[in-house]
Design a protein around this nucleic acid. Structure first.
Lengths: 348, 348
DNA sequence: TTTATTTACGCAATCGTTCCCGAAAACGAT
DNA sequence: ATCGTTTTCGGGAACGATTGCGTAAATAAA
C-alpha cells in the first residue's frame, strides 16, 4: 500500500552530499562543479529519480496544471475541444484536469473551488446553463488566477475569450433555409443565460429581417438544459408543432438539441426534409450517416481548444500582468447535406 | 499573479493560538475545549478557509484523486464510462484525472508515470492498442498502487477487472445475422494485442461453428488503430470486398470501426442492408437516426465506470492488502434495428 | 494540603523541494 | 605571505498541514 518514491534525499545520502547540492545539480545551476553535477545526474538516472510534483506545487505555488470546466464531455464539441486543449498543454508540460458541471451551477461552484484549491495555474471555462451569478468566478479572477473563457462566455469578466462566430453560423444556416424556400423557421435553442443563445438567435433574426420576414417569437423555443433532458426537446418540438402556422424548418442551436430534435421528429413519424427541414449546430462525426444526411453548422472545436490554451498559457507565463485582452472569433462551417434541401419533386 | 489562500496559520495568528490547536479543532479532535473549537470554526468560516489539498497530499502521501487512462474521450463508450466513474468518485470525495493515450504505447507510459508521480491513489486503466509490454504497469502494481482494469484488460496482472461479456455480445450479434439468413459474415476488429479483440472474435467464431459454418480467416480483418485512422477501415473493407466470396454481412467490434465501416460503404454506394448487413459494437446515442437505423451491441458503459470505481475505492480504502480479485462481467445488449435485417421483398 | 490524573494546548518534526545565506577552499593579485 | 574574489557546497528555513510528545493548569482523589 505504501509507495516509496526515490527522493532527492536518497541521492544525497548515496553520494554523501547535501540535498541543496543535489537540487542545484538537477536544476543545472551554475554554482555547481561539472564533476558533482555529472555524479548527481548519473545517480539520479540510476535510481530512476523523478521529482515529486506535489512537493514542487507546495513550494512553488504552481502546479503546472490547468483546469477545464465544461458541462459534459460526452458531447462531440467538447470532447474535440478537449483534444485541442491537450494537444497544446501536453507539449508545454502542463497537465489537464477536466471537470464536468452537467449544466449545474452548484457543481460549477464546487468544481471551481476544487480546482483552485488544487492550485491549478489557470482555468479554461465554458459556463454551465444554470450559471447566472458569476461571483464564484469573479473572486478567483480578482485574486489573479488566469482564466480564459471559450464557447459559453460572459462579458462581465474581462479576460481572453475564444468563440466561434455564432452570429454568422446562425445567420448562414438560416439564410440557407430561406434560400431553399423555407419561410417559417422554428428555432430550438439553449437557456437564455448563455452567450451562445443570444448570438445564435440574433444571427437567426437578422437573416429573417434582411429577407423581409417578420420574427415570430413563438417560433423560438428555449430548452433550459440544452437537451440534456430529452423531454425538454419533445416539449419544445410540440410547442412548435401546435403553432397555428406550423414551421416548415427547424434550426437547432446545439449538438444535443439537433439530435434530440431529429429523434423527436422520427418518433412522431415526421419526414425530414419532406415534411420539415432541419439544420443544427453539431460536431458529430457521423452527420453524413444520418437519415437524411444532416446539414450542420460545424465549429472548429479542436482549433478552439488549441487557441484557448495558447492564450491561457500566455497569461500564465507572462511576467507582468496582462491588461489587453483578446476575443478570438473563429469561423464556423456550414456543411450542407440533404436534411435541409426541400425535394422539389415531392408532391402531396 | 499570486494567489494568496487562507491557511491554518492565518487562523492561528488571528486567534493568538498555535497551528496545532487550529488543526485539531478543525479535525474535531477530542483534546480541544469546546470553546476553542467553536472559536476556530467560526474564524475559519469567516476567513473562508479551505484546507490545501497539496499540502495534505505531501503530508499524507495520498491525494484523494484517481487517474483514468483511456485511449480517447471523444468516443461514446469511454465518455460514458467516465461519467460513471465521476458519479461515484465525486460522491466519495475523490477527484478524477483523465488522460488520453490516443492508442499510443509511449503516451501510455508517460501518462502513467505522470499520474503516479502525481500521487494518485489508484488507477483505472483501459489499455491502448499499441500496448504489448506491460512492465510500466506491473512496476506500479508491484509497488502497491491499486489498479483496476476495464474494457481492455490483461491477464498478466492480477487485480480487479470490469468488462462486458464480449464473447456473448459478439456471439449474439453473429447469431442474429445468421438467423437473418447471412452466411458470409465479415469481421472488422481491433488490434490483436487487445483482450476485447480475442473475446469478440471468439464469440463470432463460436456462433459460426455452432451453426455449422466454417470459419474463414480471410473474413477477419484487423484494424491496428481500431479505426482512429480512417484509411485503415477503408483498406479493411476493401479486403473484405475483394474476397472471391464477398461477405453478405459485416460485424464491427468497435464504435469507430462501426461508424467508419458505414461511412466507407456509403461512399462506395453500397446499400445497407440491401447489399450487405451491418452490426457493430457501439454506444452512440443516435443509432436510431442512422440510415438505416443501426443494429448495435451496446455496452452498459456508465455502469462499467461505476463498478470499476467502486472496486478501485474498495482497494484504496482497504486496511489490509486484498488478494482476492474479482472479474466483474456485465451484460451487453443487442439492440436490433434495420441495418441487419435483410429485406425479403427486395429482388434484384 | 498533597499527590495523581485529566484536560488543553504548544513545540517541533515531517512530507520533498527550493533557495537564501554563510562559509570553506581554491585561486589570483599584490 | 596576505588579502580579496570566486567557486562550490552545506545548513536551515519555508511551503501548509498533521501529530507524537511534553507540559502547565485544572480537576479529582487521598
Amino acid at each position: 500500500m505504501k509507495f516509496e518514491a526515490v527522493t532527492i534525499k536518497d541521492i544525497a545520502k548515496a553520494l554523501g552530499i547535501s540535498t541543496s547540492t543535489v537540487s542545484r545539480a538537477l536544476r543545472d545551476s551554475h554554482e555547481i562543479s561539472p564533476e558533482t553535477k555529472q555524479l548527481v545526474l548519473d545517480c539520479a538516472e540510476k535510481l530512476n529519480y523523478r521529482p515529486n510534483p506535489i512537493a514542487l506545487s507546495l513550494k512553488e505555488r504552481r502546479s503546472r496544471s490547468i483546469g477545464v470546466v465544461v458541462c459534459e464531455i460526452a458531447n462531440n464539441f467538447f470532447s474535440q475541444v478537449i483534444n485541442g486543449i491537450e494537444s497544446i498543454a501536453y507539449d508545454r508540460g502542463y497537465n489537464v484536469i477536466i471537470s464536468q458541471t452537467r449544466e449545474s451551477y452548484d457543481r460549477e461552484v464546487i468544481d471551481l473551488q476544487y480546482l483552485a484549491s488544487r492550485s491549478v495555474d489557470g482555468l479554461l471555462i465554458s459556463l454551465s446553463t444554470e450559471t447566472n451569478d458569476l461571483n464564484h468566478i469573479k473572486s478567483l479572477h480578482n485574486k489573479g488566477l488566469p482564466i480564459v473563457f471559450f464557447d459559453r462566455i460572459t462579458e462581465e469578466i474581462n479576460t481572453h475569450k475564444v468563440i466561434v462566430d455564432n452570429f454568422r453560423g446562425a445567420y448562414d444556416a438560416t439564410e440557407h433555409l430561406l434560400r431553399n424556400g423555407h419561410r417559417k423557421i422554428g428555432v430550438l435553442t439553449n437557456s437564455e443565460f448563455l452567450s451562445i443563445t443570444h448570438e445564435r438567435v440574433a444571427g437567426y433574426k437578422e437573416a429573417l429581417i434582411r429577407n423581409g420576414i417578420k420574427v415570430d417569437e413563438n417560433y423560438i423555443q428555449h430548452c433550459f438544459y440544452g437537451g440534456m433532458i430529452f423531454e425538454e426537446i419533445e416539449d419544445a418540438v410540440n410547442k412548435l408543432f401546435t403553432q397555428k402556422n406550423k414551421p416548415d424548418a427547424i434550426f437547432a442551436t446545439g449538438d444535443k438539441l439537433t439530435t434530440g430534435c431529429l429523434k423527436t421528429l422520427k418518433r412522431r413519424g415526421v419526414k425530414v426534409p419532406d415534411d420539415i427541414s432541419v439544420v443544427g449546430f453539431s460536431n458529430t462525426d457521423i452527420a453524413e450517416l444520418i437519415d437524411p444526411p444532416l446539414t450542420v453548422v460545424r465549429q472548429p472545436a479542436f482549433e478552439m481548444g488549441k487557441a484557448a490554451t495558447e492564450l491561457l498559457l500566455q497569461l500564465i507565463e507572462s511576467k507582468r500582468p496582462i491588461k489587453d485582452f483578446e476575443k478570438r472569433i473563429m469561423t464556423p462551417e456550414l456543411q450542407i447535406r440533404e436534411s435541409s434541401i426541400r425535394k422539389m419533386e415531392t408532391v402531396e
